[in-house]
Design a binder for these strands. Structure first.
Lengths: 343, 343
DNA sequence: GCAACTGGATGAAACGTTTTAGCCGCTATA
DNA sequence: TATAGCGGCTAAAACGTTTCATCCAGTTGC
């Protein structure tokens, strides 16, 4: 009962070993009566395929790996869900590895994955530098798709979301609402996303000759607490310099800003409007529902998986592609002048 | 370059195949000079071990799986991190599978894991019923550890957190603070956790002869919105029946209650105190930092992994254990009378 | 100088599949 | 009637490891 092999099934059913294999893999190549006998034997012995042997023979596994920076981050978990959908449709299995932003762990994972001869790897690599271990995988012929990184590299596919465009969307919206003194809350600017979202906002401002101004309130991290401090800072400004709208680099900052403003008696959106970024679950459930720029996270995962599968299938004939998705602005009460009096 | 085998390495280094294997697995059984020659050959050919072959030979993989109900839920992601720590120390690999509360997907995952001959499975099964596919795994000799479920089954280990005790902690705290009219917000009671947390609260009340009363405000889900509605309901009560403290079945509810109370001008904790459950990341960052019952989530994962590894190692000699952890109350401003005037 | 060890290497078997070539008996075709 | 074709099956090879029994050449002990 512990571990019956195909051989024992064959003996039990009185057929050859190859026939059992055929029943498993091309059932209509074998006559109904023998097929049934084999199936009975399988059931009786509790036979379960041994995947190692299968893979050994096939030279490749039916597994696809996704290596994320942080399993606890909703951005990645949603991506994982998207990728899962696509991968499971093909009968393969998606395994999730967590690098935890640790380069050594990332490397270790990739080594193990290589030993397992995975069919492909979706990865958001730690850091922006060169990636020797990724190159090694690619040299070996294992397809790699970069997620949210390294758009434009010739040797692999990538998927990403246009953060500059996200910044534009937020800014255009605030300008449309008539705001002319606007603050960007975010930092450090060394984080690519923070810088690009700002760049988009600045570009939108530039494009429209409204005479509006964009002030940066730099933070040292992307947390609720940092958002609160930034709000304090803004409130300390002289009244005529105080912004009437705030665009935050992410939703945690935005929630912090919202809390601090509310605590100080500043009305949102009547006195100051807020737009966040990421559209996390809490954005809609905040005390004042938060407008936010939403990234198509599941879609990102799905597309990444599709690119990978295509490359895995067509091998060398495959042409690498770089897909960039556009984010979407979700307007809620925190920035909606029309609804400012509601409730 | 694509896929050198041990055989080619051997030929390249002018040694036998077994020697290469020895270099890999028991390096000090082979003389330094040949060892070096083999290592050079390995480097030159870019040889990478083939794990399928290894597993096939070994009859078992070096992988441990954890099957969670929801990869996006912080409860599980923290557990995963805990389990990872322990598993990686042993050189094994932890793979995360997501059942998404879907029994069919759970079954499919378990089948694939069985085919892979994983060394063990940590799982929070979907639902509370009988688990035929789990039994099948166990029959096959694959160790299974239940997480947050089925404490007390004889055929497997389990780890869990004592929800009744969590309810007690919250209630004792509120009674200590002098509250006598208290509400429990949560539901549906068909969810084991919701029922047990309530039972703990009720038991604490019973144990202390304070004459305090516990009213249940039933919700249909565990969301921020449901919390808001529950708060509305409580505020609609005549003044003398209105509770002075609320204990919520989870933090989302508590945040909803907090928002609604604040919006209606009710002061927290001065007028009404709040205690939540789970101590999610947002609890500490809420407008009024939220008191909450914290479960040792990483610890849960670590211990589960340890039990599993022990069983995997000692096999039949292993005695199943059921570890129950005690939760901990984190007191913050939302329920702290002493600090009620702060800020 | 011979037997007994010993460290270091070898060769072959085994793990459980999948796949390919081939065999057998039958029917349809010429 | 011979032949080709075909469906259904078998036998054997191959995938890349690990391990175990064996062997060989020195060295040691007597």
């Amino acid at each position: 009962m512990a571990g019956a092999s195909i051989k024992e099934v064959a003996r039990h059913a009185g057929v050859s070993l190859g026939t059992v294999s055929n029943v498993l893999n091309r059932p209509d190549m074998v006559s109904p009566t023998t097929r049934q006998r084999v199936l009975d034997a399988i059931a009786e012995l509790g036979y379960v395929r041994n995947d190692s042997a299968r893979q050994l023979r096939a030279g490749q596994s039916r597994t696809i790996a996704i290596v994320v920076l942080d399993v606890a981050n909703p951005f990645f978990t949603d991506m994982v869900r998207g990728a899962e959908q696509v991968v499971e449709e093909t009968g393969a299995m998606l395994i999730v590895c967590n690098s935890g932003e640790d380069s050594a762990r990332e490397r270790r994972h990739l080594e193990l994955l290589e030993e397992q001869r995975v069919r492909g790897v979706l990865i958001t690599p730690v850091g922006d530098g060169p990636q020797p271990h990724l190159e090694k995988l690619i040299d070996r012929g294992i397809p790699v798709v970069l997620v949210d990184r390294g758009t434009g590299r010739a040797s692999r596919c990538s998927v990403a979301v246009d953060d500059v465009q996200g910044g534009r969307l937020a800014m255009d919206h605030l300008l449309d609402q008539g705001h002319r003194r606007i603050a960007y809350v975010g930092g450090p600017l060394s984080i690519a996303q923070v810088a690009e979202r700002h760049a988009g906002a600045a570009a939108a401002l530039e494009d429209r000759d409204t005479g509006a101004e964009l002030r940066v309130a730099a933070t040292t991290s992307l947390t609720v607490t940092a958002g609160r401090r930034a709000a304090e800072e803004l409130l300390a400004l002289p009244a005529r310099q105080r912004p009437t709208a705030v665009f935050c680099a992410n939703d945690l900052l935005a929630l912090g800003v919202l809390q601090e403003l509310t605590a100080r008696g500043v009305r949102v959106p009547a006195d100051i409007a807020i737009v966040g970024y990421d559209d996390i679950e809490f954005a809609a459930a905040a005390a004042v529902p938060l407008s936010s720029v939403r990234q198509p996270r599941e879609q990102l995962g799905r597309t990444a998986a599709e690119l990978l599968l295509e490359e895995a299938e067509h091998g060398t004939a495959h042409r690498h592609r770089h897909v960039v998705f556009q984010p979407e602005l979700v307007v809620r009460r925190s920035s909606d002048q029309a609804r400012r009096s509601r409730r």
